[in-house]
């Protein structure tokens, strides 16, 4: 994938992940599962009613509004409008800016999804992460279950989940508070300083977290808000 395509793909995957976290019902969620149509276009759902060019997806991410491809939209306008409403709902939830655990989870999962796309597709991130694999879990201090996890299994790609995995994590990061977690997702905190002062703790195989963290910051640089 070329750089614009990676970013656009990260935006569409993140929106889809947002739907997942917001527990949009499975039928509707599936209806906006992104598909790469070609190197310039992404369709939300199989039926190609809602198609964006990469450029317009990036605009959607930047300004929160962007025109889909009209030709495709006209084939099933009602279905397309339903999907646009779903995207809107996810978009406004992302911008809600509330200090809640639910909002932290949304920001985290969406940012991790964009990071996962970079880990899988971006040349620099791929060279940094190399053949590393395993589970990285993100917690809120005191919670028994993770907010979200990023993982890679043998022979597979980096994937995000918000359901707890059964296997032991290779590394665990735990935010001291919702506030710290949100600021961290928004890229407003320095990881070394946070770790030193206990704003979050990291246990386990630190080198993996270092690499993921660096790639998340590359993602955040490419797509502010989606990475950290």
């Amino acid at each position: 994938m070329h750089s614009e395509q990676i970013k656009a793909w990260a935006v569409s995957r993140s929106i889809y992940m947002g739907g997942n976290v917001l527990e949009i019902d499975p039928y509707n969620r599936l209806s906006i599962k992104p598909q790469i149509l070609n190197e310039h276009m992404v369709s939300f759902g199989n039926r190609k009613e809602l198609v964006f060019t990469n450029e317009n997806l990036l605009k959607l991410h930047r300004v929160g509004f962007s025109l889909p491809e009209i030709g495709f939209l006209m084939s099933h306008p009602f279905q397309a409008l339903k999907k646009i409403n779903l995207l809107r709902k996810i978009g406004s939830s992302l911008k809600a800016n509330v200090r809640s655990k639910a909002y932290l989870r949304l920001l985290l999962a969406v940012g991790l999804e964009a990071t996962a796309v970079h880990l899988n597709e971006d040349k620099k991130c791929r060279s940094i992460i190399g053949s590393d694999k395993g589970i990285v879990e993100f917690y809120l201090d005191g919670d028994p279950l993770p907010l979200a996890s990023l993982y890679k299994k043998e022979g597979s790609v980096w994937t995000v989940t918000i359901t707890a995995l059964q296997k032991k994590a290779k590394v665990r990061i735990s935010f001291k508070s919702v506030d710290v977690g949100i600021k961290s997702c928004l890229g407003q905190l320095n990881p070394q300083v946070c770790s030193a002062l206990g704003d979050y703790t990291i246990d386990g195989y630190l080198p993996l977290m270092d690499k993921i963290g660096y790639c998340a910051r590359i993602t955040g640089h490419d797509l502010p808000i989606l990475g950290s």
């Binding site: 320095n190 990881p191 070394q192 300083v193 770790s195 030193a196 002062l197 206990g198 703790t201 990291i202 630190l206």
Partner: peptide, 27 residues
């Protein structure tokens, strides 16, 4: 902790390289 906060405001990351608390047991 107090010194570290002071350091972090004038030194990137507070302390860097192998002495960075993040690479050992910061707490």
């Amino acid at each position: 902790d107090q010194l570290f906060k002071r350091a972090a405001s004038v030194i990137p990351g507070g302390t860097y390289g192998h002495l960075s608390p993040a690479s050992s047991l910061p707490r």
